[in-house]
Design a binder for these strands. Structure first.
Lengths: 342, 342
DNA sequence: TGTAGTGGGATAAAAAACGACCCACTAGTG
DNA sequence: CACTAGTGGGTCGTTTTTTATCCCACTACA
């Protein structure tokens, strides 16, 4: 059977790339507004002329407005973006790509967002938007949401908003502090998430990794036991996927331990576990933080990760990832994964 | 609310004329196949280059095939035409135009076909296609269908085909012979229609217009009374609309009578009646043929007429036309009518 | 008050589209 | 059987459009 959009595509084949590019530009304007031609061109890795041509048309169509401070998306423009999202994703094959990964990775749902994180940092914004949307769809009353750190997870923040009838949502930092960058830490994120959604939050102001002695001592601390209780009650987890190397460096792992990890073939890291390419646990840090067994009991798990350089880590982690995981990633990574699996 | 196609049109405004032109060309190929570039260009009043550009694309898309004898429409192409008809008509405003005329003329249904009959004779084919489709939707068993002559009515012929479960359809010539052109005469048409649909037909081999004496004599002829009985039983009428002048000339009306008609302000002609601009009967020929009162009793009436030069006649006739009339015309005429009524 | 970033304008160079042919071929006709 | 009108494909200057890269006046903001 031939659907109307398919028929349209047959009659106007050149419409497809045009649609994709215009949609991408309009979407980028919406996400980065107010923004100028040149900045936008650089961000999307396009020439200024190309941007200009499209924005001129979009402006003429009233989807875009040019102010002194830059271009902004009109309400009409936002409506168009919303209406065409499904079509654009479908036509660019992202829907199919997601479905394929869903099957091959054995996950509940895989969402692929257009673009390449390595080329264009703004895909992170898109990633966050989709992930936030997914998350907002799942939450209910009295839920406990565990949140890890990382850029990908942080990208959700700006798209979180209070939901009707939500009550007593609590965001809990899923692990202690890592490194020194505050912006991406679990603690900071739960605070922002909670603020955005008008909800509660619990932080864990402790270094993630402790000596055996300190660890045992901490286990009886009320502050710690309270958090651990939350981990047992967690309904939802939002987490990123780290490459083993990257995480080890962020954790200030000693050169010797790094060598050991490498020897053992550690590829990915999640919740304090290091996995090799086959998905086997090759190392485990005695962390204060949510444990894999606790994650597995959660009803909803949202994994967010982008970038081709993380493909190995993703493949490794998804060998053990709980089936109820919803995975949101970018086009470049998704394609790389698909290639590797075929 | 913004529909998806509307959003598409906002994002890709140049798609609209492109879609229209490609659809028109593909449709023309289907109707005139096999046909060459040059003939097609002449018929559509376009340059050869333009046709070539589009057909190259269509061929690449597999909607068109180039054979030695010309271009033909593939089955995919026909599917595309079918799927996009509603969209194209909607976007070119033909649907709305038809609806507007429906209201203003007080008819059951008005169908507007794209193009201008004066520029491009092939719109007649389209006209016939739509009219035939409408007709085929209405017919049931045991029906008597009265048919007049004329180019417009003749255009239905090639699109008539046997319908499932049809039984005992009878086509009856609605009037006697006029002039000498056999192809467009009611008698010829009923025969072709019947052949195409595998149905019965009754012809009326008599001059339409007779002297009073001959007329009275004929009324008792079995051949004539049989036909007249059919007229009383008619369920459906398919007819054209003539301008008074044109019809008078075809009827070989004497110069004197012509002058009289003109004096009386006769504008249109149908079923032997001449109407002035206000729709009043200004003259009536004692014809052997279906009478206006008999037409009014029919369940279905299909009126087919195209061309700007007939607008006056159409406006005049539709002042008295039965409300159950379905009217099929071309874009140019429809627009002219709409202008005159506003 | 300075600076970085904005939209709009201009212009020469490059590319694509166009128009107007020709060509070899063939289907249908007389 | 020859002929002619019509076919799709090819070619090549010319014209039109698109592209790239500046510059400019302005403004928001620090």
């Amino acid at each position: 059977m031939l659907t109307v959009p398919e028929a349209q595509r047959r009659l106007l084949p050149e419409m497809n790339p045009l649609l994709q590019s215009r949609y991408r530009i309009l979407q980028s304007v919406q996400l980065m507004q107010p923004i100028g031609r040149r900045t936008l061109a650089e961000s999307l890795k396009m020439t200024e002329r190309e941007i200009r041509k499209v924005t001129d048309i979009l402006r003429e169509q009233g989807l875009l407005d040019s102010q002194k401070s830059g271009m902004v998306c009109t309400s009409d423009g936002e409506l168009v973006i919303e209406q065409l999202r499904a079509l654009v994703y479908e036509w660019s094959g992202l829907t199919q790509l997601g479905k394929a990964l869903e099957q091959q990775l054995g996950l509940q749902h895989v969402l692929v967002v257009p673009g390449d994180y390595n080329d264009d940092e703004t895909v992170l914004t898109l990633l966050g938007k989709e992930a936030a949307q997914q998350f907002l769809l799942t939450i209910a009353n009295e839920q406990v949401v565990a949140v890890t750190g990382g850029k990908s997870v942080a990208s959700l923040a700006q798209f979180l908003q209070p939901v009707d009838h939500q009550q007593n949502i609590t965001f809990v930092a899923a692990r202690g502090g890592i490194g020194h960058e505050m912006h991406m830490q679990a603690n900071t994120l739960v605070a922002t998430f909670a603020m955005q959604m008008d909800a509660q939050h619990r932080t864990l102001f402790l270094p993630e990794h402790l000596s055996e002695q300190a660890y045992q001592a901490m286990l009886t601390e009320p502050m710690v036991t309270e958090i651990m209780a939350y981990y047992d009650r967690a309904d939802c987890v939002i987490h990123g996927i780290g490459s083993a190397e990257e995480m080890a460096i962020r954790r200030n792992t000693s050169a010797e331990d790094l060598r050991i990890l490498e020897e053992k073939g550690a590829v990915s890291e999640a919740f304090g576990y290091y996995f090799n390419a086959e998905g086997q646990i090759v190392h485990r840090i005695r962390t204060i933080g949510i444990q894999l067994e606790q994650v597995e009991k959660c009803k909803h798990i949202i994994a967010v990760a982008a970038g081709k350089q993380k493909v190995n880590a993703m493949l490794s982690y998804f060998k053990v990832a709980p089936k109820q995981t919803i995975f949101i990633t970018d086009e470049a990574a998704a394609k790389a994964i698909a290639e590797r699996l075929l």
